[in-house]
Design a protein around this nucleic acid. Sequence first.
DNA 1: CGTGGCATGTAAACGGTTACATGATTTA
DNA 2: TAAATCATGTAACCGTTTACATGCCACG
Lengths: 193, 193
Amino acid sequence: MKHSRTAFVVLGMLAVEPRRSGYDIRKAIEASVGHFWGESYGQIYPTLKRLASEGLIEPVPSPRSKRRQEYCITEAGRVCLREWLALPFQNDRPRNEFLLKLFFASEVSPQVAIGHIRELQARNRRAMETMEQIEKLAPKMNAGNPGLPYWMLTLGLGMAMTRAALDWGQTALAELETLEGASGASVPAGHRT
Amino acid sequence: MKHSRTAFVVLGMLAVEPRRSGYDIRKAIEASVGHFWGESYGQIYPTLKRLASEGLIEPVPSPRSKRRQEYCITEAGRVCLREWLALPFQNDRPRNEFLLKLFFASEVSPQVAIGHIRELQARNRRAMETMEQIEKLAPKMNAGNPGLPYWMLTLGLGMAMTRAALDWGQTALAELETLEGASGASVPAGHRT
DNA sequence: CGTGGCATGTAAACGGTTACATGATTTA
DNA sequence: TAAATCATGTAACCGTTTACATGCCACG
């Protein structure tokens, strides 16, 4: 009777909007909490079965297709979700491969670190753009939805942290480019610090 | 012949300083990259065995104790580490339970969200303090170490993002407290901040 | 003499991803 | 009618955590 966190995202997504299929739920996760959470089908479909067998969600026939299986959250499911929401959140052990490589970067040439940071900047700029799009469109598409203020808050934290990372990247690149000049192969040996 | 990322942290830690034991490595990870990476003993010890059997590290007897098993990175190990460092980094799928709970917070009372944010602020303030300590002490303890500039960069990103999160938290709390007042729920005067 | 830190390990269980298999339905 | 997308599912595999077991060694 213990649930993985996948179960709660699924429950949550069905609480936000009923009559979703496994496929829908995956897409909804991608589109709404994709910046900070992900799930695969291999996780979602078994979870759906399990939640249904426990009465936390209930399968309903789809008007669109016989193949498609839609679900609704039950009252028991809502209770379960609310209990979990009120529990203290746990910090997942962070795993940032970028930072790990940067940490050991003195083993390789400064260009490697510079390359990684540039790549990070590119990814963060892209992330920033999509978040800006969402920021613009979400209020219009979800006017009146009680979830909206919270959705905007999650977006706000994502944007704030991404902005901070972008700023850091800029100064970090500047720093490394001087460091590269100081120890790089293109500089005569006598000019080293 | 494919290695998990655990192998590379271990290799990296032995590249930074030789003659470390599994226990040492764990502590070193905690102390230096703990903000963005973690490993458990159940992962470290088997990895050590495997790397040794592949000749990427080599066990050396300890002068301190017969029980203690120290390791050094080999030339092959260094090559392997450098290759990995140059490879593009992968973004791990982020999993932020705090944001997930905040996203679904309209299912529960605003106080729940407020409580979570306050808790986040507390954790971030603590993290900020330890990072500030490290920022102050690291340069003195590692003067001349070629890794130092990179270590400070990783610390810098951690601090920048934590600062951004702290700022966000402040405005988010302000916002939610008005939202709480607007929805009719009265708060006893003594409970306000 | 006891406590806390040093030190090494393993087995079971878990959570999760990947790759694969299959086919219906919509749209260009 | 071809391509894209919708849609469901599973089995194998992997990395990781947890809990447990053991015992040394230094210090107060």
